[in-house]
Every structure is written in structure tokens, then in C-alpha cells.
Design a protein around this nucleic acid. Sequence first.
RNA 1: GGCGGCAUAGCCAAGUGGUAAGGCAGCGGUCUGCAAAACCGUUAUUCACCGGUUCGAAUCCGGUUGCCGCCUCCA
Length: 496
Amino acid sequence: MALSFYNTLTRKKEIFEPLVPGKIGMYVCGVTVYDYCHIGHARSVVVFDVIYRYLKASGYDVTFVRNFTDIDDKIIQKANEEGIPWNELAEKFIEAYYEDMEHLNIEKPTYEPRATEFIHEMIEMVKELEAKGFAYVVDGDVYYSVEKFPEYGKLSGRKLEDMMAGARVEVDSKKKNPFDFVLWKSSKPGEPTWDSPWGPGRPGWHLECSVMSRHYLGKTFDIHGGGEDLIFPHHENEIAQSEAAHGVPFVRYWIHHGFVKVNKEKMSKSLGNFFTIREVLERYHPEVLRLFLLSKHYKSPVDFSDATMLEAEKGLERIYSLLDAIKDKTRNSKEVTLSEEMIREEFPELYEKATGFSARLKEDMDNDFNTAAVIGAFFELTRTANRYLEKLGKKKAKGAQAALLKLTEEVFLGNGKILGLFNQDPREFLESLRNRKATSLGIDVNVVEKLIEERAKARKEKNFAKADEIRDQLKAQHIILEDTPTGTRWRVELEQ
RNA sequence: GGCGGCAUAGCCAAGUGGUAAGGCAGCGGUCUGCAAAACCGUUAUUCACCGGUUCGAAUCCGGUUGCCGCCUCCA
């Protein structure tokens, strides 16, 4: 099957064919840097990170551009509130953004341009639009005239007449049509400005994406993405600007992802019901957030709550426990050369599932980037592998056994890279989950370890009454013990 | 008012014409000193509701209800 995905522009799933065979140009709208990123931003970034990884893994040479909007009303306003220069504020939040991205294990795009680096090119584009009759000037502001662009509304499926009927249109006497938008904005005293043919001012928001995408990807490129709230007016306006200026199609495939919701409501700045990435990462491992965000199809809304996050955490714990067990079983096993058939015969069911995994992943990812189905496949593989471990019993794995387990581990690690999961050392991951929760409950790790030692002694002496007493005591503090052949392990279980 | 999306077990969630993946929770069992973890079995004759097309529909079409989003900055 060929890669296909939903194209907002045509409103259907289409087989993807790049403009230039083997190459892909992809542009995704980044953030406006006036605050810390919330988990809605995290979804955007994770979704396109996975798409980027998958396209590369599929053999494409991908040029991926994600911008920073570093000049904008909100930045100016926030900087004024904080009494610092606007560019200092932008810089601060770009740094914070990079910290968050590193925690989330986001691959760096090919280019991450900032709007302010392209002021000159933006002015050039406004001039082009003015020369072609798509723009008009009023008091130092330059507006785009939507009525001059017959296809205006084609992305969002609206018609200008229909929108006119809508009540919530601001009245701005400067505009010829209420849907005209600003290309160049004259600046008020004290605001950052750049010189232009229309006087001192700054660019309108939509312009930067038209200009930066042209700079890096050309007048027509393959994929443009963002949150579904950007469809109108942002992406609609980008199309209007770019196609009017260039006379060629702007973007071939548009990808929009759904929102993160909280209590069934859209999470947003204006509603005040948002969680920043850093807040969430204090409580959950970054991979838990990734798994949570990828466990539902990217177009559907996803509901953020402790219950849904804890569920993701348990699932990830299950997989890492398996990876840990495999490491344990194969430790010190010697490398031996074996035929595929010998490995297969060890446990055909696991061998088939493991060796067939990449094809399964490709099938699911080719089908509109169905990460939820891929995650389901990982859990199926987990069960089969656990079944095999069960069969092996307590002995260390040798020969074909070890080879089969190593093969399985490789499948998790290799394919996990596409989703950006299973990237941690299993032991460290499990301990970090535990310590994170222990800390939040104010549990002293040393005290726990001491009690476990005490219990081990009691068990050795067959003093099970005392051993159970200690276990119950710890259980009351949400600490669950697991006795394994290699000693007692413990974890923290929070109530849902 | 205009445009669009969604509705699958207690919960989360795949499945887009061929007879319901997966996870969490629950129940029964194996293992265990007892547990936990893991494994085995079990949990939707049915996919909001009503019609229609079809040999066959959760999947297509029409209608109804409910929830949500965009139309203003927004991932």
C-alpha cells in the first residue's frame, strides 16, 4: 500500500505523491513565543515529529521547516507588562521552547526560521501583491483584498457571502471588506518598527509563513501542517497571499491535527484551562506524554486528564517491564551464529510477529499515520513476548532463545524510534517513574529500601507474618512490592 | 446564522463494504509461603437512533438526537 493521508484541501484521503520524486518539502506553523508552551503545542510538535520521522524512514529526503513567530501584538504586550524589551522576551521563550522539545525527544527540523529574520523578504512580497493589485494602503497599513482572490475560502470550505452573514465580524472602517487582513501594520510610538515603502511598521502575522516557506521550499511545496484552528483564517490567508503573488498552487497537501481538550473543552489560553509542558513533565515521564498523545488518531480530539495519563503510563510500564525482563534474560548470553530457521523454531509465533512488525507498522502508518493502531501492535507483540518468557521460566536464555529475545528487543527499539518511544534504558525508566511518584508522595526511598531489606531477612527466616506486615505497611503508602528471582522490586501506584 | 467533525463494551481506543485490534478496570484460573508481575480464560450477536442501498454495513446514502470545533488571537 502506498502512503496516503487526509488532505484538508480536498477533504478526502489521498495517495501521497511528492512534487519531486523522493523529496518532500514540509512546513509546519510553530509557536508565537510569548509564553511557555502548553500540551496543545506538544501535540502539534509530537504529531509532526512522528510524521517527519516516518517520512524519513520511508526513504524520503525531507526538508522540514518550522517557524517561530517572534514579533506579534501579544509579544509586545507581554514584554510591556514585564518591562523588558520585546526581543528579550521572545528569546527567553525560544530557549524555554528548546528545553521542552529536548525533554519530549523532538527531532530538530531542517530549518527553524524566525519571522524577524525575514522582514526584508516580507516587504518584498507585500510589494509584489501591491503591484499585482491584491493590496491597498490605508494610513500606512497595507491590507490584502480578499475579493480580488476568487478562490478565497477554498481551504476552509467557506464562501465570502456566507461568512458575511456571520455576526462576529469586527467592524474596521479602514477595510474594504471585513475579511481583508493586514499585510503590513504601521507601528504606534514605542513599538518595534522596520522601515518600509509605506512607512515604519511591522509585518502582519500571516505573511511570515508565505515568505519563509517560499524561501526554503519554493513557491509550491508538498505538505503544510498545523492545528485545525489554523485552517481559518491563517492558512486560508497564506494561500491567498502566496497564490496571488506567485500564480501557482501553494501547497499540495494540508494536514491538520485535532485539539487537546480538558474536561471535554478545548484547552486554550483564553479559557485559562491549559497545562504547560513543563508542568505536566513534573508529574509524568515525557514518553508517557508522547504515548498519550499518539494513542489516538491525530485528527481526533484527545482528552487530557490524570485518568488518561495514568493509563498511558501503565501501558508504557508494561512494555518497559518486558524490555527489562528481556535484558535480564539475555544478560551475558553469548553471541552465536544461528540460522533464521533455528530462531524461528524456538517460538514461531513470536518470531513471525517480530519479523513481521515493520510491515505492520508501515501498513498502519501509510494509512493516514495511524499511530494508535501501531501502539496496539506493540501491545500485541508485548503479550506474545511475555508468553514466550513465561515458557522459558526462570533460566537465563541461551543460543536461539537469546537470539529470539534480542530480535524482539530490536523490533521494539527500531520501530519505537518512529514514534519516539522506548528510547530509555528500561531499568532507568521504571526507576524514574517510581521516583517521580515517590517524590510527589513525600516517600523517602532510603526508608523503603531499608524496610525491604528487613523483610527479605524475615522471609529468609520464614517469618512470613513479619514479612507481610512490612508489605502491608508499605502498601498503605501506595508502595507495591514484587518478589522476583533476582530480588524484590517496588513501585508506586497512585490511585486513579 | 454559515461551515466542519464526532458518537464502537464500565472507561480509553483501532477498525471506512465481508462478519468487532489493543489498553485500563473487573471476574475465574496458573504461578507464588502469601502477594505482585506475567500468562491462560472471560467481559459488545453488536457499533447513538430511524429508514434506505447491498448477497452482505460499525463501515455507503437520507433523516433524527446528542456532543464538540471553526467563523476573533489560538496548536
